[in-house]
């Protein structure tokens, strides 16, 4: 079920780019921190992070989310 972060052809939505840019700027963040910085509801952030992770744009270390090379590459083109 898409959250509108990643389209079927792999393109990223504005919300996805917003979250990825935030993670690029801050380095590594917990879901609660992403929600706080992005000023979005926690459940929505968790859903978006899950979708981005499933699409290969994020990885998880413990409770922290980090960008993958695929995300860095996508951001450089955004």
């Amino acid at each position: 079920m898409s959250n509108g972060c990643v389209s079927p052809d792999g393109r990223l939505s504005e919300r996805a780019i917003e979250l990825l840019k935030l993670l690029k700027e801050k380095g590594r963040l917990k879901d609660t921190e992403v929600a706080e910085y992005a000023q979005r509801p926690l459940f929505q952030v968790r859903s978006s992070l899950r979708e981005l992770m499933n699409a290969g744009f994020l990885k998880v270390e413990g409770e922290h989310y980090l960008l993958t090379e695929k995300a860095e590459e996508a951001l450089s083109k955004a």
């Binding site: 898409s2 509108g4 509801p41 459940f43 968790r46 978006s48 899950r50």
Partner: peptide
């Protein structure tokens, strides 16, 4: 209306 949810995980 605010995207998909997975309950209870997302909450």
């Amino acid at each position: 209306t605010m995207g998909p949810i997975k309950f209870p995980d997302d909450f």
